[in-house]
Amino acid sequence: MSRESASENPRNLQSRSVLAGQAAAAAAEVENALAPEPNLGAAAFFDVDNTIMQGASNFHFARGLHRRKFFTTGDIARAMWQQAYFRIAGEDPEHMANARAKGLSFIKGHTVAELEEVGEEIFDENMAHKIWPGTRAIAQGHLDQGQRVWLVTAAPIEIANTIARRLGLTGALGTVAENIDGVYTGQLVGEMLHGEGKAVAVTALAEREGLDLSRCYAYSDSYNDLPMLQLIGHPCAVNPDKKLRTHAKAQGWQIRDYRTGRRVAVVGGKAAVAAGTAGGAWRVMQAIRRKPR
């Protein structure tokens, strides 16, 4: 029998298949042995804008949509003017109600699948290089300890899910845009996930997942996220704004700042112009409209 015919012998093929199966099983056993023991009672919650990512995720997303002709440069200029007004005038119920009424009208008529696909592209273009390595390392540290890690952000859930998935995190909580049969209506489901809303969402998730919030961790840059930070046993201020830094020092909270020297001023300035707080970032997007057809 020739060497070639021997290699095709059914018995040889079967033996090779058995060896392959045994090797795969052994590799899986090693992988499972190296995997961290799940720590189901504890978890970590991360704000996104200026906490895990430099600047506002909505602004980075808007840049990508602008390049794809979803809206005009004039729309962006009007959004920036409105954001400047909000920063000067401050937040009040009328502004919040107006923001909710206008929420996500720029994607009205587009499909969920389309925005998810575009979101993947925009993450690679505008967001991947904006991730703070220090905060990313913290999140990975929680994963390595067997803890689950969620993003909690005012950004649309589609953006939040994309960021969480690309960073290998457990999942995300974000603002939900209404869709009917996979097509956006331009309205929000409930309220924007901002301020007290984040605390409510985290509490609901903890009840569903059986988490002990006193064992959990929370990270944010913004004083607006104080309700969420105070809810958690181990709060941490990351790249904090002035009010949060002052509060964190008074409470003895851990503070981590990955900005240095001029970079602090540049990043802070861009955040102020583009979106400021997570709530401000959402308003930038709310003021943007689809390009007239």
Rank of each mutant, 00 (worst) to 15 (best):
V267R: 05
Q251S: 03
L40I: 08
T175F: 08
G190R: 10
E117F: 02
F86Y: 08
E158Q: 15
Y184Q: 02
I88A: 13
H95T: 14
L19P: 04
H110K: 12
N32I: 04
Q140F: 12
E94P: 01
P36H: 13
R136T: 01
V176H: 08
S7C: 07
N239R: 02
I122K: 00
D75V: 01
P240L: 01
V273I: 11
V284T: 01
M1T: 11
Y258E: 15
R263C: 03
K102I: 11
S105L: 13
S7I: 11
C216E: 07
L188M: 15
I232G: 12
V267I: 11
Y217I: 00
W81C: 11
E31W: 01
V238E: 03
E207H: 03
R283C: 10
W282G: 10
R67P: 01
V18G: 01
A272P: 00
Q254A: 10
T277L: 07
A101Q: 14
M80H: 14
L226N: 09
F61T: 01
N32W: 05
N179A: 07
G252H: 11
G171A: 12
T203E: 08
H234D: 11
A177T: 06
R148Q: 15
L19T: 14
A79L: 07
V266Y: 09
E94C: 04
N98Y: 00
A154D: 05
G195T: 02
Y217M: 08
M285N: 01
H234I: 06
A265S: 07
R208Y: 04
G21N: 08
G197W: 03
V149Q: 06
A201T: 11
C236F: 02
D124K: 04
